[in-house]
Design a protein around this nucleic acid. Structure first.
Lengths: 148, 148
DNA sequence: AAAGATTGAATACTCAATCTTA
DNA sequence: TAAGATTGAGTATTCAATCTTT
């Protein structure tokens, strides 16, 4: 493992952290103004929508959205109270629970996406070329994969 | 303003958000294991170290680290209690306060940096080419600048 | 024992209200 | 009246302890 951090990598990391903070702040503010789902709720529901059977074990969901188990338990509580998902017992392991997205959850995703997409375009995509976007996606995919 | 989000940009945004969550989680965990400064404290102290006179108005500091005013007040309370910075009255505006980094703060930065750097190398830089790093830094700099 | 999920205690963040000075 | 900073109330997050099932 190299010990040296090049100036380019140092700059890239600094921008990565700073831009993330500023961009997500703006986007979350926009979502709140338009009474759309906050980013955390969107991520949870999108993970469920994409999952097989539109449900996921809480364990797996915590991993997907990068939250502690207890943090996820409480986030799921709130989203469930809003009727956008429900818990379901796991038939093969009675310790386990699934989170399943509801019809209202799918509807909320559908309504939020145009607002979220517009914000991504406005704050991010407009300023990044197609080629740069591909480089960013491919480099970060590689870094993520190595995280194991 | 274009309404359309290309697949490449959509992918890039998704990876940007996901990689940020995963990478900062790992890095923060490493810092905690090694009893180094947490990322938030590091950011505050680094902003102060780089600032003119090694001090910044609390207002400006909140902007730099992307925290609400009240959030920053409390973060500064904690870092000040640890002796790594101190508040100083603004001579020209008695409403205002500066945060000034202390010697202990500079020392803590110096001790944390090798650990932080090693984590950045290991989790990020190793997997990103020099050329990709330059593309990431330049694209994100552009997006940030347009945020006004 | 160990694993999935939840709960309690401690900590940290935001918004709105407040205090002080400009 | 407004601006800089802080405080109070409410909410969200984590770690460690707990409960249930494997």
């Amino acid at each position: 493992m190299a010990e040296i951090l090049s100036e380019a990598h140092d700059d890239a990391w600094y921008l990565f952290v700073t831009a993330h903070a500023k961009l997500t702040e703006r986007i979350d503010r926009r979502l709140a103004e338009r009474r759309a789902l906050p980013l955390e709720w969107y991520d949870v529901l999108l993970a469920l929508k994409r999952a097989d059977g539109r449900k996921l074990r809480l364990n797996e969901l915590a991993e997907r959205v990068t939250l502690s188990r207890s943090g996820l338990t409480r986030l799921v509580d709130r989203v469930e109270s809003a009727g956008l998902l429900r818990r379901e017992q796991c038939p093969t392991d009675r310790r386990g629970a699934f989170a399943v997205i509801t019809g209202a959850g799918l509807k909320a995703l559908t309504e939020t996406w145009p607002i979220y997409r517009q914000a991504i375009v406005e704050y991010f995509a407009t300023h990044v070329t197609e080629r740069e976007a591909r480089v960013i996606a491919s480099a970060l995919t590689r870094a993520l994969k190595e995280l194991g």
